[in-house]
Nucleic acid binder design. Structure first.
Lengths: 229, 229
DNA sequence: CATGTTTGTCGTAAAGCTGTAATATCCATG
DNA sequence: CATGGATATTACAGCTTTACGACAAACATG
């Protein structure tokens, strides 16, 4: 999973450093600036997945930064979480009206901000919040019903799709043909165990990309497993 | 524009009445209940566009209501704003982790809650807020009821329009015929699933412009999805 | 009320998928 | 290296799902 890219705009050095540290520890790629104008430049260079924006910063004000981010097509849909003083209800309302997605009032705990960032990302970019299955170079998006390998869209039939999804939910684990029949075809299916072989073959064929190695391992007299390649 | 449907779950009668009044004045269709179990029933009968959920209610707790809404496929994607006591940071974090989209801490002003509701709806259901929907080269203006593609004005029938709008609110996502019937025709419609095919074909025909590719993807034995082309 | 549009359903054609069986190949072991 | 057991591959007939065209009823519109 690519690390979600955050842009942190905060002019209190102590708070900025604390947050940067915490977010990096959680697997986010963080860039930080104390200045509104610089924030706009950074956001324009490489659009972040989410902006955390202190409302009271030097230079261009938070509200103005928010408005300009929304106006620029490249960043119009990047979610923004603003940090405001507890008392300033007006700021909060104005921020939401300007197009901020959320606010967190100071003082807040890093844990709360983390939960909020993760909630927003989950909503806006499900793929970034881990609703996507990844095993080695295989990616499966259950919402879009898509499978991709090394950037190539794969065309996978219904049964092969279910089979692959089943494997990807337990990477590395060996399943017997009986277990696969139960898990993929449904308990009590009246299907020949040998038929599994055929679908494994079809799946292997479907996920072949160039010279990439076969990620499905045959375990003689036991079953099959999907390996992270 | 159809009035956005809110479900308000609040057991303080005074607050409930106040909010109901304010939201109706702003053009929302509000249903109110004080009880968690009843909330689930109401939400299931007719999925609201947004739920405002007090964390401390009688009967089933707020967190449980939230979890169950998320678990039911029909309401899994309905945004939830929770109302919490100011001090209870744990509740807020837990709420966000459970799948709530936002929280507002008590006491709050109705104006702030209004701003937040509108912000959430704008983000999750842009069409409800009158914003332009864009997916690939398709543009849909919910206010003017117009659809255009690559500069060409398209002529789209009523049902096809609703269908397209529904798709454009969740680009890339695959919907089963049943989900489409619920979302576009309304819950509990007594229509043949095969009929969806026909409307898909009509929609495909309506959005054909020159040699532009078909943005509607058929996912065999699963449904259809609109792709950003 | 006449006219054109929209809507849901059918029947059929076309496309795609599935399970099985027959055959070839692989592999561990004596 | 021969052998028995297990897996791989191929072909195919039957089945399921989707696309398409046509139609009558319902609806809207002037």
């Amino acid at each position: 999973m690519a690390a979600p890219k955050l842009l942190l705009v905060e002019d209190d050095p102590a708070l900025a450093e604390l947050l940067e540290y915490r977010f990096q520890a959680e697997g986010y790629a963080v860039r930080t600036t104390a200045d509104g104008d610089e924030a706009l430049i950074l956001a324009d260079e490489d659009a972040p997945d989410l902006v955390i924006l202190d409302w009271m910063i030097e230079g261009t004000s938070g509200i103005e930064v928010c408005r300009r981010l929304r106006r620029d097509k490249a960043t119009a849909h990047v979610p923004i979480i603003m940090l405001t003083a507890r008392e300033a209800e007006d700021d909060r309302v104005r921020g939401l009206e300007t197009g901020a997605d959320d606010y967190v009032t100071k003082p807040f705990s890093p844990r709360e901000l983390l939960a909020r960032v993760s909630a927003v990302l989950r909503r806006v970019r499900p793929a970034l919040a881990g609703e996507m299955l990844e095993v080695g170079d295989l990616k499966l998006d259950p919402v879009a019903h898509r499978v991709e390998r090394r950037g190539n869209q794969l065309s996978v039939g219904p049964t092969e799709y279910r089979l692959l999804k089943f494997f990807m939910e337990s990477p590395g684990r060996v399943f017997s043909r009986g277990q696969l029949l139960d898990g993929v075809w449904g308990t009590g299916s009246e299907i020949e165990e040998r038929t599994v072989d055929v679908h494994i073959r079809r799946l292997r064929k479907a996920i072949t990309v160039g010279t990439a190695p076969d990620p499905i391992r045959t375990v003689r007299s036991a079953g099959y497993a999907l390996e992270a390649v």
